[in-house]
Design a protein around this nucleic acid. Structure first.
Lengths: 208, 208
DNA sequence: TTGTACAAATGAACACTGTTCAATATATTT
DNA sequence: AAATATATTGAACAGTGTTCATTTGTACAA
């Protein structure tokens, strides 16, 4: 009964072929300029074939989102895992997040900015699973900071995780969408990391 | 010599007609679904006419951006101007920003998320003028907080303004792009404002 | 009033887009 | 070899931004 298996494998191969081509074009030319026809011609298939593997362009986008998340976001948290001090680990995570976001703007847009209309509930689960894991690791880290005596005991983990996430996301996305250009500062990247450090110092000492 | 004047006025009227129609459709159907042909048919002109007043769709978008900024962002800062205490004024500004951002997601996307490719340098200046004013008012507010003894004296105004802006922008945009859905929290809006309040308490007291 | 110059508006045309689907080609099973 | 099932095609549809030769409408001089 190896034939059905091989068929299934071949289907999956084509599906991956499409996804990789889509990712290549997407990273090179951005979302707006990634067309079904371009993807199809790159892998030497007809446009119609793509619709045999992905319902529509949006589903393809969601698949790209998952791929980006799985590949990069996980490693972000794993790389800092061996930093023993929870506060230092938290800081390192924030800096890595910012660095990744500005180094891979297309990926970042896909993961945290683009609103791909997600109708199918099943897809929703897929979409969020890795993200939920990331948030949980962040919350675990905050909890460790509390247990280590860095933070107060009465803090709400959801609130603090959102606080941290939205701070780094805010800086990253303002930079990536070129909104930091209102600041007449030459080295914007240095400016961002400096500001992030100020944030971390505020976290422990406050602004007063 | 009133004829040339009238002609100029008529030109400006058509230009405004286009802009208002564009804004209407944009707010109703979003950026993606705002087409030149829709705008043209709404004001009963031909598609080509729009290109006599705006170089391309991007320039029309920039004009919309300016309008949104002028109308709303200014009033945001003016409305809180009569709050005497600088720290309370700062908090009120943040809350108003968040409220406006979640109440007007299309406008917010236009102002702070969409990256309209801005090639013309002249346009750039137009693009930023109101934004720079907003940032300056924010910096003034921070300065007032320092002078009132709420914040330390050695703080960098650029850093603190970015810190504040990116925090509220981060929360706002994560909500508007539906990224807060990873949190299994029923009332997301309440959650955001709660988190923003935690941020303000941290600013003065720290997390420790 | 007529003719001419000039600006404004048109709408067909071009090259693209996402998506569908009857027709065709290929591979497997009987 | 014939029948069946699956994979692939590419033309077609309705839409997009943008351009430009052509037409329309107005203003001024003869």
């Amino acid at each position: 009964m190896g034939i059905a298996e091989r068929k299934e494998r071949e289907r999956e191969e084509v599906k991956d072929l499409i996804l990789n081509a889509a990712r290549e074009i997407f990273l090179r030319e951005g979302y707006e300029n990634t067309s079904i026809r371009k993807i199809a011609s790159q892998i030497e298939y007809s446009p119609g074939t793509i619709y045999l593997h992905y319902k529509d362009k949006n589903e393809l986008l969601l698949a790209l989102h998952d791929k980006a998340f799985e590949c990069k976001m996980k490693s972000l948290f794993i790389d800092v895992q061996d930093i023993a001090d929870p506060l230092e680990r938290l800081k390192a995570t924030g800096r890595s997040y910012l660095q990744y976001g500005i180094d891979n703007p297309q990926d970042y847009e896909l993961m945290f900015i683009l609103t791909c209309t997600m109708d199918a509930l099943a897809l929703k689960e897929e979409f969020w699973s890795d993200g939920a894991m990331a948030i949980n690791m962040l919350k675990e880290n905050v909890k460790a900071c509390i247990e280590a005596g860095y933070f107060r005991k009465d803090l709400n983990l959801d609130e603090i995780s959102l606080l941290l996430w939205s701070q780094v996301h805010g800086i990253t996305s303002l930079y990536n969408t070129e909104r930091l250009n209102i600041y007449s500062i030459e080295d914007k990247k240095e400016f961002m990391f400096r500001t992030l450090d100020v944030f971390f110092s505020i976290i422990t000492h406050g602004l007063a």
